[in-house]
Nucleic acid binder design. Structure first.
Lengths: 230, 230
DNA sequence: TCAAAAGTGTTGAGTTTACACCCATGC
DNA sequence: GCATGGGTGTAAACTCAACACTTTTGA
């Protein structure tokens, strides 16, 4: 079958990380071409013999050194035929979450730098990458309502306040500490470790960890978690 | 920018309709090529200078005569590199709903027939079209929980039982009539028309219509509607 | 008068929200 | 002893689920 089409297919990845009490997103600095030295989302062109998801994983690994097993397809951007000024390109965007402290970044193929950017301080990016990031954030917020989120973003052991903070950061609003704690603990996918964490001042915090098995169950079944409380 | 890629981009549309108390989906019979005379989802290749959504609308119109203004991007299928045996094709699938009674079907460019198929009786289709339909149905079910659905699927004036039936058909299970009515009426986007509809036997039904303004508000704001009740 | 479909309320259980003070530590 | 962040309970309001009989029509 001969098809005369001149459209290119790219994949882009919006990888969220949580560190320093703030939501971050991973960007790479382009190493070549018209947008050389500009920060963009990791991503690139799909290979002819490669599945979309595989392409996304490959690009992420090549450009950032980050190996993520679970990427979720976010949206395919291709309504604006000039979204890439160099050629007609549609981009299948993927969403993922990870814990930045666990990984070392490594620029490589096509990229000359990699870094975590604070979500609220993302600069203006080429293409429609700001829009992709916004869409990814909207999806992430929506996911909080029906899926437990945290396992991938936090360290193995963490004070409860980290989880509180993570939720407030993603949702970008205050939530009631007592009600939040009640609800989360009610899901039973958290366990106390018995350890405590001291920090400069204030009462030391008990450290919690995810019970992986129960967490995965909840992931599958979904949770009903609309945090409406102020 | 020169990119050596040999990947084609298609769009496919899963259009749901509700008639004869059953959920239907629109299929077309291919008029040419390897899959000539086979039923498939309406769709086709994107043009170089055409946005994805525009392409989906165009293909739907060309192949079925149906003009739909609101299509929702569903998912992009491209993990299986052999999903189309003729060439490497990724397909951006769209989801829409419509009222079959309002439209005349018209096969044209590329298609030699168009018809509504009962959802539960869809035959085995070429490519991954059965999977696309399944994904579309899953999304449609999910949408019931957070969006009012019905406006596009039902006639302008309808008995309440049509809406009940529609929900039961999409969800594929029984729901409690009293609770359903209470909940739906509570949203205030339905209005009594004052008219009644007689049918063979049984008590005649009051006819309702959607209050378009309030319906659209609810669409935007979303609704919280998990129909758990048996 | 019977069959068919439409219409209609209440109650108990569970969930959600709102809200404020004490505790353990470092300095 | 004070500043800092951690930890805790209850009551009122609301929402949800379960459940069965009456009404209106045509045949």
């Amino acid at each position: 079958m001969k098809i005369k089409q001149n459209i290119n297919v790219a994949v882009d990845i919006a990888l969220f990380g949580y560190k320093d009490n703030n939501l971050h997103i991973l960007l790479v600095k382009q190493g070549f071409g018209q947008f050389k030295n500009q920060w963009v989302l990791p991503g690139g062109f799909l290979k002819d013999n490669e599945g979309l998801l595989d392409g996304a994983k490959r690009e992420l690994l090549e450009e950032t050194g980050v190996n993520i097993s679970s990427l979720e397809q976010l949206y395919t951007f291709g309504d604006n035929i000039n979204r890439d000024p160099r050629a007609r390109v549609i981009s299948v965007a993927y969403l993922a979450t990870a814990n930045p402290s666990k990984m070392k970044l490594k620029a490589d193929t096509d990229s000359i730098d990699v870094a975590w950017f604070e979500y609220i301080k993302i600069p203006k990016l080429p293409f429609d990458h700001n829009q992709i990031i916004k869409t990814a954030h909207t999806r992430l917020k929506a996911k909080l309502n029906y899926q437990p989120i945290g396992f991938e973003l936090l360290s193995a052991k963490f004070p409860f306040s980290d989880l509180e903070n993570l939720y407030m950061t993603i949702l970008q609003r205050k939530i009631d500490r007592r009600n939040f704690r009640k609800k989360i603990l009610g899901f039973n996918f958290l366990e106390e470790t018995g350890e405590i964490k001291k920090h400069g001042s204030g009462r030391p915090a008990l450290l919690y960890k995810f019970n992986r098995r129960k967490y995965m169950e909840s992931l599958k079944e979904g949770i009903n978690f609309e945090i409406k409380f102020a």
